[in-house]
Simulated scan of single mutants.
Amino acid sequence: MSSPLAGVVLAGGASRRMGRDKATMVFPASGTKTMVESVVEALSARCAPVLVIAAPGQRLPELDATVLRDEVLGVGPLLATGRGLRAAAEAGCERAFVCAVDMPFMSPDLIDELASHVGPDVVLPWDGRDHYLAGVYRTDLAARVDDLVARGERSMRSLVDSVNTQRIVLPETAALTNVNTAADLV
């Protein structure tokens, strides 16, 4: 039997495009839930534990997840991903679904589809482009992330391009929608 799949939500901080913290913005389609609550709920349906990587001092609503704090603000998703993968490994998980907080339509079905592919280091959805922050990653990649960050890398592409990555071709789906502007919220 394989180990459980952890969920890692990268909550980040303020968005340059939106001028405020995306994680705590209410996502109208969910009623009164914030984007972080919506994403944690979707991951909780398939992942245990669910870990939220937050910026230093970032305020979040009460979540049914473990909140871990980035030690440095503004260094991009690679460092936060490494922290989440390390925590997932410490919790006994061999793989983790890593997701950005700005994907409030995330669905358990997408997680199931990607998690069903067990051989590669990374499994990413592809719908004409890579979705680095909606994929399944082996938790032992945390050491690789440390090496990349020590060399000055900050992008997820640097990790994905350096390991065995499988891209799963999918039709366009709402689950992969990133909310990057206030207009995307409606």
Rank of each mutant, 00 (worst) to 15 (best):
V26M: 07
D130Q: 13
V75I: 14
R46H: 11
E62P: 07
A183W: 03
G76W: 03
F105P: 05
E41I: 00
R95M: 09
A54G: 08
V163S: 13
T165L: 08
T173C: 11
L79I: 07
F97Y: 13
P56S: 11
V40F: 01
E71K: 00
E94K: 10
P49G: 01
D21E: 14
I168V: 15
A14I: 11
D102L: 12
N178V: 06
R46C: 13
D112L: 04
M25I: 14
E90S: 15
S3V: 07
L79F: 07
K33Y: 02
P28L: 07
L63P: 02
L60M: 05
K33A: 14
G135F: 03
C93V: 11
A91Y: 00
P61Y: 01
H131Q: 09
K33H: 07
C99I: 11
T24D: 05
A11D: 03
V160H: 03
E41G: 00
S158A: 15
A54W: 05
D127C: 11
A142D: 03
L63S: 01
M25L: 15
H117F: 01
L68N: 06
L148N: 03
V169A: 13
V118R: 12
A175W: 02
S107V: 10
L63W: 03
E94L: 10
R17N: 13
P49Y: 01
L63R: 01
E172R: 15
G119R: 14
L60K: 08
R129I: 07
L78A: 10
L124E: 09
E172Y: 14
S162F: 11
M106A: 14
A143H: 11
V123D: 00
P125Y: 04
G12C: 13
A23M: 05
V179G: 04
N164D: 15
P56L: 11
V149H: 07
T24G: 12
C99G: 04
L110I: 08
D140V: 09
G7D: 00
S162T: 13
L124F: 06
D140Y: 14
S2E: 12
L159V: 12
N164K: 10
R95A: 04
P77A: 15
V136C: 13
S2Q: 10
L5P: 05
T81G: 03
E37H: 06
V136Q: 11
L185D: 08
R59E: 10
M35F: 01
S116L: 04
L43I: 05
L176A: 10
V39Y: 00
